[in-house]
Design a protein around this nucleic acid. Structure first.
Length: 427
RNA sequence: GGAGGGGUGGCAGAGUGGUCGAAUGCGUCGGUCUUGAAAACCGAAGUGCCGCAAGGUACCGGGGGUUCGAAUCCCUCCCCCUCCGCCA
């Protein structure tokens, strides 16, 4: 949620930035918000004057009663009743104003950072780096879903039987490989100074709102309506919400957390080759990084996080590239996002395996996540997060890129300590 | 799931209609003392909103109500604890 105080002082700049993100009615909405804000403040001034009158009157009544001045007390009571009616009506007005403000405010996405290229959709994203790992085959390469079936390590039909499409069952070395990836990612994150968190996999509505999933992306989450919970679409939600409604001492920043969780996404409206195999699932595993920083340090932190994730991909010997998302493709809550994509050599396509974002104060404003700076002033912190990494597409790329002429699959060296085997299939 | 108890400041814990944003203790910060530290003593210290400021106003789990006046009484929702049942 954008800060209303910033809207007051930087309206023009914010409008320009929102327009770069192709937000419909940006100017209109901002102007409406400013008008509402004006009305709100005037209402508060009026309301507080009345309340003050009420308070002093009420106090005097007590004294008059004690002094035995019955009539004067009664007169004061009448005055007080009048003030009370006025207060009630003003309170109702204020509530309406605030509700409308909130309603409009949540429709505005975050403003893109000036370094974000302007563009409407994914076509305008910029490839800012591509490593030189190449994969080539002197045989006909199989897509990962074929390989998975051949080696009986992933069973989609069983998943359908148990739950439905998009809930695969991993078996044998497939399951072990998943566990190995999780263990590898967590070991690296721990070594890099991230504190490991095991959060709940269901969250309440307040948490969903805090990180921006609600109300904007209501349809993306599975809801447990009976209990008012949501299955987390990413560990970002619980791990960032850890700090909802808190004031952190500056000395305790940055906060660096990581966590492995399954993630649940409804993915309504997806279809075709995008959902083939492991490309897009309703349940998948992911290790997530979350950082809370001072505003001054969030952009250097963003760079450091991307570099860290690239290190993982390098260790996995995967071909990858780094994209700077354009304004239109940057998510609703993010000010700047890098995506990391790996090349899956049999499908011959790039798969997004990580998204690293700086949310600036967009989430922390909703979360009331603040810190006390060196002047003892309370300010909103910045929040960031990044996948490190999402498993299914990594698995897809590993299977496809490492397949051998004899049909077996080579396990990258860094994973072998975790898997206990160096290949799937073959001799 | 059944029965009972309870939600107050960083923590513990008073407060059952006005003088309560709230005692007290611990913890925290500043100072005195000390070679240094501890102890002791003195002092400071919640958060939001409006305001240039002075100040005002709101907040004792959330919402609503009674009353001139609510942390305190009533209703309702949420959460926690104890016991029983069930159970990894």
């Amino acid at each position: 949620m954008l800060e209303i105080t910033k809207l007051r002082t930087e309206a023009e700049d914010i409008i320009l930035r929102l327009e770069k993100k192709y937000v419909a009615h940006a100017r209109e909405t901002v102007m409406a918000l400013l008008t509402l804000d004006e009305k709100r403040r005037q209402t508060i001034v009026d309301l507080e004057a009345l309340r003050q009158e009420m308070n002093t009157t009420a106090k005097s009544i007590g004294q008059l009663m004690k002094a035995g001045k019955r009539e004067e007390a009664e007169a004061a009571k009448t005055r007080s009743a009048e003030a009370k009616a006025a207060i009630k009506s003003l309170e109702a007005t204020l509530q309406e104003i605030e509700a409308e403000t909130h309603e409009r405010l949540v429709t505005l996405p975050n403003t893109p950072d000036p370094s974000v290229p302007v563009g409407r959709d994914a076509a305008a994203n910029t490839v800012v780096y591509q490593n030189d790992v190449k994969v080539s085959f002197d045989f006909v390469a199989q897509p990962h879903w074929e390989l998975a079936r051949t080696h009986d390590i992933i069973d989609w039909e069983l998943g359908v039987k148990l739950t439905g499409a998009g809930f695969p069952v991993y078996k044998g070395k497939g399951a072990i490989l998943q566990r190995a990836l999780i263990a590898f990612f967590l070991r690296e994150a721990n070594a890099a100074g991230y504190t490991e968190i095991q959060p709940p996999l269901m969250v309440n509505e307040a948490s969903g709102f805090g990180t921006g999933q609600l109300p904007d992306k209501d349809g993306q989450m599975y809801a447990v309506e009976r209990d008012g919970f949501y299955l987390i679409p990413t560990a970002e939600v619980p791990i960032t919400n850890l700090y909802r409604d808190t004031i952190i001492e500056q000395a305790d920043l940055p906060i660096r957390n990581c966590g492995y969780t399954p993630c649940f996404r409804r993915e309504a409206g997806s279809y075709g080759k995008d959902v083939k195999g492991l490309n897009r699932l309703h349940q998948f595993d992911k290790v997530e990084l979350v950082q809370i920083t001072q505003p001054e340090h969030s952009y250097e932190t963003l760079e450091a996080m991307v570099t860290y994730v690239e290190g993982l991909l390098t260790q996995l010997e995967l071909p990858y590239r780094r994209l700077l998302l354009c304004t239109g493709d940057t998510s609703f809550t993010s000010a700047k996002t890098y995506d990391l994509e790996v090349y899956s050599a049999a499908q011959e396509r790039w798969l997004e395996v990580s998204s690293v974002s700086n949310f600036e104060t967009y989430q922390t404003n909703r979360l009331k996540l603040r810190y006390r700076d060196e002047d003892r002033k309370i300010r909103l912190a910045h929040s960031l997060n990044g996948s490190a990494l999402a498993l299914p597409r990594i698995l897809a790329a590993l299977l496809e890129n490492n397949q051998q002429a004899d049909g077996s699959i080579r396990i990258p060296e860094v994973l072998q300590a975790f898997t206990g085997f160096d290949r799937i299939g073959g001799a």
